[in-house]
Design a binder for these strands. Structure first.
Length: 612
RNA sequence: CGGGGCGUGGCUCAGCCUGGUAGAGCGCUCGGUUCGGGACCGAGAGGUCGGAGGUUCGAAUCCUCUCGCCCCGACCA
């Protein structure tokens, strides 16, 4: 490919609204352009990388017998109503109405009615396709003989993120591989789960990025298990804790926190109400410091407790108040709270409601004496005595709290956000290390949530009807490409991993106006292409060498072949490794051989670079 | 959704406070000199200053509304 004909405009300066490295570099390299918030065009260079990654995904999935199909991006409300998600999926689901519904809406309005427009939305843009695939399978699969089956698509998805950001890493429109499997029983679904788990390890391994499979929260969807695949990068949005002594790696939302022994706070005493008065002080640390009496000049943070009031909403629409009690120096993990009460949604109770319920301002609410609240106490407080807690009276705290005694009906559970340095709960020896990760894939055992709701059943060997057991498996294609850049760049630009580089070799012709030099460059280009390499040839005239080198570094093609009059005078051209900057010089006739050697070396390095 | 910021040639920005008929650098076109890490000279093209309304003799500039984009927050109970 001649660069003079390539649709590309590199930028010397970073566009103002690009805030992560991958977005900055992809925009500067002329790979993507923003069309609207969180919506991008993939220009030729980016599209080549995206398609290469798609092909890796296809090849690896084919090894496990997955079948590719393509479902519509625009989906009817009916299917989503059938699964129940039309109601529960939030505003990330972009809903709209077609002309028929619009006409009916207009007619109602003409009659003087004031219908709610939302009641007329009858379509949405698909953020995920469980409903559609389940519909397809229930219509086409009847017998256990046809199972198991694993179907996937690579498709543009839309999620109306409340705050799109980070370029391709958190856009509203993105390309995703979503796969779904159907099975006669749990055991079969579990086998497929691990088959996909291993396929994903192969896929991200081939990509040549550092990644980790991570145990993650499966939400309230039936308590099934799930792994996320994360590309490790400092800019990642997710916090991951990984044990340095065993394989336990998990999203911090899920990480089990060890039960910590509390400090010894003396002999148990009674609950002394309203003992401490810290007027106007709200922060946990400041409050503890201000708690003074005859024996105490400020309380240790670990002897205070903190309290959070949540409203849990269940899948049947019922709600319940949930109170979480933790040690003052611990963080609450709301995901754990949500899962412990098996809620569909969990929200922090709005401040005004919380104040009305407890009768105290923020900072002075506590668990004692609250009616109608399900109380959960972090297990690190099991057996603790002489704690302080909010008195439900503004400015006051109780002293002497013994949760087991003073909070009847409370449950001791793991509510706490695990932290770096905590002892691993799995091996009991190692300690958690913290990483940041970009979630690029997920394997999830769905169970029968959708097949049951949508009557996707099969007849077993006894002729009995059963719901199929399902799994789903996603990979964010465009996000993965961005994540690869987050992990592979330097001050000069992108450093593409070989497998998804838009081109493998970039020929930089420094003197394209010279027939002799251009002739050699073209010759080498042809030979490399004949040998199967993907070559970008910078044949642009009128640019100084410096400008061409800068552009080449920015684009990040793994190998750069420099052809110039100066080198040719000595009969040589130069091959430079983008990452190491190491240069080798040789005769033009040796180009193919040298590029092969360099490629083999790069691929060998990739094998050792992946995740564990 | 709450708070803050920004919208001026393709890109990065100045001009706005203190109204007077729109600028720089990069990029682009043409000509010339250069040519191994973002060269130089000369000549050009390119902008309803996000949009609407208002104030004024006159608005990029002041006022109101609106749209878009970006950032921070959304876990002190």
């Amino acid at each position: 490919m001649k660069q003079s004909k390539l649709l590309i405009q590199t930028l010397r300066e970073t566009p103002r609204d690009a805030d992560v490295v991958s977005q900055q570099l992809m925009m500067r390299a002329g790979m993507i352009q923003k069309v609207a918030a969180g919506i991008y065009s993939y220009l030729p260079l980016a599209f080549r990388s995206i398609r290469k990654f798609e092909e890796i995904v296809r090849e690896e999935l084919a090894k496990d017998g997955c079948q590719e199909l393509l479902m519509p991006a625009v989906l009817p409300a009916e299917l989503w109503q059938e699964s129940g998600r039309w109601k529960f999926y939030g505003d990330e689901l972009l809903r709209f109405c077609d002309r028929k519904a619009k006409a009916e809406l207009a007619e109602r309005r003409a009659r003087g009615e004031q219908p709610d427009e939302r009641d007329f939305f009858n379509f949405c843009l698909g953020p995920t396709h469980e409903e559609v695939i389940t519909d397809i399978v229930r219509r086409n699969v009847r017998s256990y003989k046809q199972l198991p089956m694993n179907l996937f698509q690579i498709q543009t998805k839309f999620r109306d993120e409340r705050r799109p950001r980070f370029g391709l890493m958190r856009g509203r429109e993105f390309t995703m591989k979503d796969g779904y499997s159907f099975h006669v029983d749990d055991a079969c679904a579990d086998r497929e789960y691990w088959a996909m788990f291993n396929a994903y390890k192969r896929i991200f391994g081939r990509l040549g990025v550092k990644f980790r499979p991570v145990e993650a929260d499966s939400g309230a969807i039936g308590g099934s298990f799930t792994h996320e695949f994360h590309v490790l990068a400092g800019s990642g949005e997710d916090a991951i804790l990984s044990c340095d002594g065993c394989d336990y790696t998990s999203n911090i939302e899920k990480t089990e926190a060890p039960k910590l022994a509390g400090a010894n706070f003396g002999d148990r005493r009674g609950l002394i109400k309203d003992h401490f008065c810290t007027p106007g002080v709200v922060g946990q640390v400041e409050q503890a410091a201000g708690m003074k009496d005859g024996e105490h000049d400020g309380m240790p943070l670990a002897q205070t407790s903190k309290f959070f009031l949540y409203r849990a909403t269940f899948s049947d629409g019922a709600t319940k108040l949930v109170g979480a009690v933790l040690r003052g120096d611990h963080e609450v993990n709301p995901v754990k709270v949500k899962n412990l009460v098996a809620a569909a949604e969990l929200e922090l109770l709005p401040l005004d409601e919380a104040e009305a319920l407890t009768g105290a301002k923020t900072g002075f609410m506590g668990p004692v004496g609250l009616a109608g609240v399900r109380l959960l106490v972090d297990r690190s407080l099991e057996g603790a005595v002489n704690l302080t807690c909010g008195a439900n009276r503004t400015d006051y705290h109780h002293f002497g709290l013994d949760p087991a005694r003073d909070l009847p009906g409370c449950t001791f559970v793991d509510l706490r956000m695990a932290a770096e340095g905590d002892t691993c709960t799995r091996c009991g020896k190692g300690h958690y290390q913290a990483f940041r990760g970009i979630e690029v894939g997920q394997v999830f055992k769905l169970g029968i949530k959708y097949s049951k709701a949508m009557s996707c059943t099969f007849l077993d060997e006894q002729g009995k009807e059963n719901p199929m057991v399902m799994g789903c498996y996603g990979i964010g294609i465009t996000r993965t490409v961005a994540a690869a850049i987050e992990q592979n760049y330097d001050a000069d630009g992108i450093i593409w991993p070989w497998p998804i580089a838009p081109y493998q070799v970039q020929i930089v012709c420094l003197d394209p106006a010279s027939p002799e030099v251009a002739g050699v460059a073209n010759q080498v280009e042809q030979e490399l292409e004949d040998a199967g390499f993907e070559v970008l040839h910078d044949d642009r005239e009128g640019l100084s060498p410096g400008a061409k080198f800068k552009d080449a570094d920015l684009l990040g093609i793994p190998l750069r072949l420099t052809v110039g009059a100066k080198g040719l005078k000595d009969g040589i051209i130069e091959l430079r490794d983008r990452r190491t900057k190491v240069v080798v010089k040789f005769k033009p006739e040796a180009a193919v051989g040298e590029v092969c050697v360099a490629r083999d070396r790069l691929l060998l390095e990739l094998e050792t670079a992946g995740g564990r």
